[in-house]
């Protein structure tokens, strides 16, 4: 019985995860390393990877700062009524339930070129949809719950007594945050950052809708993979996908490490 279950587990993992992963690698290296290099050094591939990199950096920074602050408010703030806190707390999860495509659509509907706000901004020379800002906003929307959901439980668990102790010793909020709160939530935040990076790296649906997928302009790594597949250029697609997959595996290792550190502290 035991053997059967373990065997089944191995089989599922092999079929669903390990073999596909190898397939990507072998697909990318179908024409040898040269083919892979060629696929990756296409100008559109370099540009797409760079776009993804830029979005990852911007989104991670913004999501971390706002996510941590919002978590602190949702757990601690005495100026928010508990019922409002509860309401906001459940709203935090909503982006989980929203299909990325719909997330992208929301932004197009709100600030797209056909809307009042969009037209106004465009008049002022700021382009949001079909440009970087829209892609960043779409990704921020999708990644929003990740940081909050990592940090809030840690804050709840450590309680507010250490912070109050610091207050009684004369420390004001910033000093208290950096010296007392931050060391306790650090690993939770790092875990949240890793999750945010992974999700941003892989975000596809929302970005596809908002960006318009314009080559060498708003194309990201994932939307390039999509376009390559649509153009039946599976080899090139596999090359970019392999880079993304390698990053994901790296992030997964980082996640495991952060999880372990978080448990220790």
């Amino acid at each position: 019985m035991r053997r059967l279950w373990i065997g089944l587990t191995y089989a599922v993992f092999l079929l669903l995860i390990v073999i596909p992963l190898f397939k990507i690698a072998s697909g990318a290296l179908q024409d040898g390393v040269g083919g892979l290099v060629e696929a990756l050094t296409r100008p559109e591939a370099i540009h797409a990877l760079m776009m993804t990199g830029i979005i990852v950096v911007i989104v991670t920074v913004i999501n971390t700062v706002f996510g941590v602050m919002l978590s602190i408010y949702l757990v601690r703030a005495p100026w928010l009524h508990p019922r409002i806190k509860g309401l906001l707390n459940s709203i935090v999860d909503l982006p989980y339930a929203v299909s990325p495509v719909i997330g992208g659509l929301m932004i197009v509907l709100l600030v797209g070129p056909d809307t009042v706000i969009g037209a106004m901004l465009e008049g002022a020379g700021v382009k949001i949809v079909y440009a970087l800002p829209g892609m960043v906003i779409a990704t921020l929307f999708v990644t929003f719950p990740l940081m909050v959901r990592e940090v809030m439980p840690v804050l709840q668990e450590i309680g507010s007594q250490q912070e109050e102790a610091a207050t009684m010793l004369g420390s004001y909020s910033w000093y208290t945050f950096w010296k007392v709160t931050w060391p306790s939530i650090r690993w939770g935040v790092i875990y949240g950052v890793v999750l945010t990076v992974a999700r941003t790296l892989g975000e596809f649906g929302a970005v596809l809708v908002v960006s318009g997928n314009i080559m060498n302009l708003t194309q990201t790594a994932t939307t390039l993979v999509y376009q390559d597949v649509e153009n039946f250029n599976v080899l090139a697609a596999s090359g970019v996908a392999l880079v993304l997959a390698a990053f994901s595996v790296g992030l997964l290792l980082l996640m495991e490490w952060a999880k372990k550190r978080r448990e220790v502290h």
Partner: peptide, 8 residues
Amino acid sequence: FQNYALFK
């Protein structure tokens, strides 16, 4: 504090 709230 009751549980001392030492900075751990």
